[in-house]
């Protein structure tokens, strides 16, 4: 089972995660170990990259209107910054004593911290992106709730004008998200829900039209037409709700989802 729930996060973190695990194992197996080479240059490169991430991260926080991101991201940035400091300290200690065990421990601690902090940061950013998609899904849910009160052709035209771009956006974003997921089952559920929504949308519009025509002509069967329309709207809402549920899952929740 994949550890990282999106392909982007996996591609960024996975190679280093493996190397850090290897570092820990090698350190344990080697016990006192060989003399460490001078790590000041690679540590300096990490520090520079961390400075840049902190800058970009702070800009992201400032420009975001997502309260959760604004709350969560600073601690992830602090973690990365502290870990970078650990690496610099380890590097300085190793320069004085290439066999220093505390320095090696600090090196491992720093490497792990960079990995975990970056992982938290990416997760935080990813969750914020997911919330944007969910916001669009909820807009569709709001429109679907309005379908029950549409009783003129003019309102139906306006309803369609409002719903269509929103639905297209959801379709585009969920489709792109589905391709990003490493969890096959979650991805397949999103595809299935999206297909259902695409099938149901024109049928719902048709049922709304039938209802309006019956009411306008004062014909029989308006109750049945309303019932049919409501049923279709609720089927679509269920599919959107399921998409929201799956979008919020990460592989860490997979026990619950299955």
């Amino acid at each position: 089972m994949p550890v990282f729930h999106t392909k982007t996060i996996e591609s960024i973190l996975e190679p280093v995660a493996q190397q850090v695990s290897r570092l820990v194992i090698l350190h344990e197996e080697a016990e006192d170990g060989n003399a460490m080479p001078d790590l000041s240059r690679p540590v300096q490169a990490v520090s520079l990259a961390v400075t840049n991430l902190v800058k970009v991260g702070r800009e992201t926080i400032q420009n975001s209107d997502d309260d959760i991101l604004r709350l969560d991201m600073p601690s992830a940035l602090a973690r990365v910054e502290n870990s970078s400091q650990h690496l610099e300290e380890a590097s300085a200690m190793l320069k004085g004593d290439p066999f220093s065990t505390p320095a090696r421990k600090k090196l491992i601690e720093g490497s792990r911290g960079i990995l975990q902090g970056t992982s938290s940061l990416l997760l935080c950013f990813d969750e914020s992106e997911v919330r944007k998609i969910i916001r669009e899904c909820k807009r569709v849910l709001d429109y679907l709730a309005v379908s029950e009160v549409i009783d003129t052709m003019e309102d139906l035209v306006q309803f369609l004008k409002d719903l269509s771009p929103c639905l297209s956006k959801v379709s585009r974003e969920v489709s792109s998200r589905e391709k990003e997921l490493t969890h096959q089952v979650h991805s397949e559920i999103l595809v299935r829900c999206l297909e259902q929504v695409k099938i149901l949308a024109p049928i719902l519009i048709c049922s709304m039209k039938v209802f309006i025509l019956i009411v306008e002509q004062q014909g029989k069967g308006s109750d049945e037409a309303a019932e049919n329309r409501n049923y279709l709207a609720s089927r679509m809402s269920d599919e959107i709700q399921e998409m929201i549920r799956i979008l919020q899952l990460t592989t860490y929740d997979e026990d619950q989802s299955e």
């Binding site: 290897r22 080697a30 460490m36 690679p42 490169a45």
Partner: peptide, 29 residues
Amino acid sequence: EMILEAANAIMCASSNLVRAANAAQRELI
């Protein structure tokens, strides 16, 4: 996204660092 690029740059730099540290240990095993 810039944040993804920045995170990727850190991971590349960390990868070089950890590889250098691993290389020294591997000689001993």
